[in-house]
Design a protein around this nucleic acid. Structure first.
Lengths: 241, 241
DNA sequence: ACCTGAACACCGTTCAAGT
DNA sequence: ACCTGAACACCGTTCAAGT
């Protein structure tokens, strides 16, 4: 996608032939901006046009203010991203740990987590490495998961690593969901990869989304593998608790 | 005192089962040399100062040319990223599939893959969604893995999804390795998360790197889980096939 | 063929001026 | 307190002009 050379201005000017009551400098009578409105506008922007569309100018335009006006409310774009993190993480459901066995609960949580970020995938690389201290919702989620594992007999010393492993898979899967559908197209090298190309064909013919299929296959394998570490006797059935 | 024109990039021509990248005689390697110099300078920049330091200006400065001079050799920054992908992927070792059993081979490949990207972590979100057609090394790797799975009796229709699942975990883990060490620090909310904070303390006291530990635990679980899908007699509730 | 330097349309952010 | 608009130091990219 290239930068447009000159056409965008015209489109904008076309809709505002008569400049409709432009706000003048100075304090408006009511508060125009606030944290939630800014964060929501930013999140909507990402959802609609991807991460690269998330510019301070675009957020400002969405709210009908000038870009610099945002800085009366938010310290930086980085802080705006933290607000978005808090909004997004609030949608991850982690209540299954109180109703289902640990395997089902982990799968339900991970699926919710992954779906939330698949819907806001451009944010993944950003949020995956964002410190968690500023987001109470994220911390609450971790406590739910950790407590669920604890009740299921998980060794406490393994809980953090297990969560990180699951999260790595979740983020990686959500990241994968952002990839173009033809990411595996061999292009000019077609014909020289006998097994892989045949596998690719079979996958396509299955009609299943590669990203979704991979997520569910991997999630089941990962959760089963982690749980079978718990009890050396190894039955997968929830023998614990 | 920069420009290491050492023959370090020769490994790109290592295993040539795919004839696609053969250079013809006739048109000299002047351009090619430039290509590799540019890609190497870019990769070094990322390694030294992170992804945000990878600007066309910085690459040009590294090579003592003006930014616009780069465009005589590379079409866009996106293409430069593809060159980097090719350089990085060449370092992933996937030869274990010829010497080890499938489980050990998958673990060896995944560990190499993850370590390569942990060393160039800022590139993960970029490369994870970069189309693969422009990178012969990447395609070769996929063929190696797919063929290894095939020889081990993997259902061909599951091969792509299995690779994607493993790759998701690998990229997610490498991404996690870029996170700040104190990413889980609860900050002002300390004291309100009994299980998670205790688990965090135990993890810290173990002296193990959280990212490394999570990767190895998760990798073993994921590989075991995937393999146990193969043989229905394995005791997992694999009902299909 | 391949470089320079000016130019363009962007970015995030700061700040004085205005109400 | 909170907005506007100008300004600053950046981006990636194009292009005419030089050799």
């Amino acid at each position: 996608m290239k930068q447009s050379t000159s056409g965008d201005e015209n489109r904008m000017a076309g809709t505002t032939q008569v400049p409709a009551e432009r706000r003048r400098a100075g304090r408006p009578k009511g508060t125009v901006l606030q944290r939630e409105k800014i964060a929501a506008a930013a999140l909507e922007l990402v959802g609609a046009h991807g991460y690269e569309a998330l510019t301070m100018s675009a957020v400002a335009r969405e709210l009908s203010v000038s870009p610099s006006a945002l800085y009366n409310h938010v310290e930086s774009k980085q802080q705006l991203l933290q607000w978005i993190q808090e909004l997004v993480m609030a949608r991850v459901e982690s209540d299954a740990f109180h109703t289902l066995d640990i395997g089902a609960a982990l799968r339900a949580w991970a699926t919710s987590y992954r779906n939330v970020f698949a819907a806001h995938s451009p944010l993944i690389p950003v949020i995956a490495i964002l410190p968690v201290a500023g987001s109470p919702n994220t911390l609450l989620m971790y406590e739910e998961v950790a407590a669920g594992m604890d009740r299921a007999g998980w060794p406490r010393a393994d809980i953090v690593s297990s969560i990180v492993a699951l999260e790595s898979f979740i983020f990686g899967s959500a990241l994968d969901a952002t990839a173009p559908l033809d990411i595996f197209d061999p292009g000019p090298h077609s014909g020289s990869l006998p097994v892989f190309e045949d596998a690719l064909r079979l996958q396509r013919e299955s009609g299943k989304s590669s990203a979704d299929d991979a997520f569910f296959i991997g999630l089941e394998a990962l959760v089963n593998g982690l749980i079978s570490r718990l009890s050396p006797v190894g039955g997968l059935g929830s023998t614990h608790n």
